[in-house]
Structure formats: structure tokens, C-alpha cells
């Protein structure tokens, strides 16, 4: 199977309100897919559902290969307590939590995986520092290293550059690109920073009311530019109608 995730007719509800209706899309292996959409359009609910933290109302999700349980996940920044005592290396090693032997011992090769993840994210030199004393950008890279330890070949990033300064954000994008190019990973990324994130994405899934669509990133970038010229929003339910979510293979 060339797709790492296939979703068919997915309907998602949050607190009894349907936020995503009848969504069909695929995530091709080895690509970066951006999930965009207004607040409340169901991006976070979709991510939680893919992670198995939220139950879909109807429809089906198919994972290829290692699948659920081997998905690396970078949560939104605010989710983690600021006063938690932990060293960077403790946090990164906790990425193996789902892969522990007998639920207790590190899997074989864990130390090498950690070393690789820390080198990739540039966190090797702060391994013994206290996590909550780091800058926002450093913390985000540590959490990415943790996600890499959990990941098979799929990683889901929930607003990875949110609340980061421009330099840290640029670093983050560089790392994300390298995940795909140098490590052959598939990346699903929720982002509000559309202008930059669309430049590293291959494909965009735009969630909007009943009118979600999926298209190549280049096409989305053009629409983004058009939308700016019109002073209108992108993928507004009235202005753009693309019917059922679909995408064309390049």
C-alpha cells in the first residue's frame, strides 16, 4: 500500500457536535501533509482520532504497517506542565513508553535511537538540562526528539511552530523537512502558519464545515495568494466549492 493512512467517510463529533462530516482522504507515504482550517473546524479532533485518543462517530481509518501505537506525536505546546521536574534526556527516553519490553525495559537499540533523535533535533548538548528551564524553541525540539523515539515512520505534529519566535520556527521547519528528505518519514502537520508551512508541504488537507478538500500544496499556495488578493478567506464555504475531498496524484 502506498498510503500510510486511508480515511473513508469519516465523521467526527466533539461534545455531541459534528465537526467533520463524511471526510475521505489518504496520506501518501513519505510526504508532508498540512492540515489547515479555521479554529473549530475539527483539526485537533481529527488528530486525536488518528492517534486513537478520540473515537470516530462513523467511517473507517486504515493504517498501513506499524500503524497506531507507532505514531510519533508532538502535542500542542500548552499541554505540558511548566513546573515539572525532568531532564531533557528523561523526556526523550519517555518516547519509548509504548515500546517497552514487558512494559518495563527499553527496547533494543533505544540508546542509538535517542542519540540519532537528539542529533537530528539539535538537543544532544542540552541532554542533562532541566526541561522546564529551556526556551520555547528548545522545548519543542526536545518534544520532537521524544516523538521520533516513538515513531515508526509516521509523525503527527500539532502546531509545531505555535508560540515560537521566527528563528526557532525556521529551525523547526528545517528539521521537519529533513525528517522527510533524509529519513523518509511521513509527516502530518496541523498549522496556522500557512504561508511558511505550505512551502514545505506536499499536500494540504483543508477542513471547513461540510466542505473539506485535499489538494497538492502548490495549488493551495496559489489559492492562498488569490485569497489574499481578494481579501477573503481560503476555502470559504461560499467562495470555493470543491465538492468531496479528493486529490490528484502528481
Amino acid at each position: 500500500m502506498n498510503n500510510i493512512i486511508e480515511c473513508r467517510n469519516l465523521t467526527l463529533a466533539y461534545d455531541g457536535v459534528t465537526v467533520v462530516r463524511d471526510l475521505t482522504f489518504e496520506v501518501p507515504r513519505g510526504e508532508i501533509m498540512l492540515i489547515s482550517g479555521e479554529n473549530g473546524s475539527g483539526k485537533s479532533t481529527l488528530v486525536k482520532t488518528l492517534l486513537g485518543l478520540h473515537k470516530e462517530s462513523s467511517g473507517e481509518i486504515k493504517f498501513d504497517g506499524a500503524g497506531r501505537g507507532r505514531v510519533g506525536y508532538l502535542p500542542q505546546k500548552s499541554a505540558i506542565g511548566a513546573d515539572f521536574p525532568a531532564t531533557v534526556s528523561e523526556v526523550v527516553f519517555s518516547g519509548f513508553v509504548g515500546r517497552l519490553r514487558y512494559g518495563m525495559f527499553l527496547p533494543r537499540g533505544a540508546k542509538d535511537d535517542v542519540k540519532k533523535a537528539m542529533e537530528l533535533t539539535g538537543t544532544a548538548d542540552i541532554a542533562e538540562k532541566c526541561f522546564n528551564e529551556l526556551s520555547g524553541g528548545q522545548q519543542q525540539r526536545v518534544l520532537l526528539a521524544r516523538a521520533l523515539c516513538a515513531a515508526g515512520d509516521l509523525i503527527i505534529l500539532d502546531e509545531p511552530t505555535n508560540a515560537l519566535d521566527p528563528v526557532s520556527a525556521a529551525d523547526m521547519y528545517k528539521i521537519i523537512k529533513s525528517l522527510k528528505n533524509d529519513y523518509g518519514m511521513t509527516v502530518l502537520m496541523v498549522s496556522h502558519d500557512l504561508e511558511t508551512s505550505v512551502t514545505i508541504a506536499d499536500r494540504v488537507l483543508h477542513l471547513c464545515c461540510d466542505d473539506a478538500f485535499c489538494c497538492p500544496a502548490s495549488e493551495y499556495a496559489e489559492r492562498l495568494a488569490d485569497a489574499h488578493a481578494d481579501c477573503g478567506g481560503i476555502g470559504n464555504c461560499e467562495s470555493h466549492h470543491h465538492g468531496e475531498a479528493h486529490h490528484d496524484d502528481k
Binding site: L51, G52, L53, R68, G69, R70, V71, G72, Y73, P75, A79, I80, G81, F84, A86, V91, S94, G95, V97, G98, R99, R146, A147, A150
Partner: peptide
Amino acid sequence: FDEAFSSAAG
């Protein structure tokens, strides 16, 4: 440290 991450990781 992070219950959501741990659950997602299996």
C-alpha cells in the same frame, strides 16, 4: 509527564 502522548504511543 504527558498522558495524551503516552496514550497515543500505545
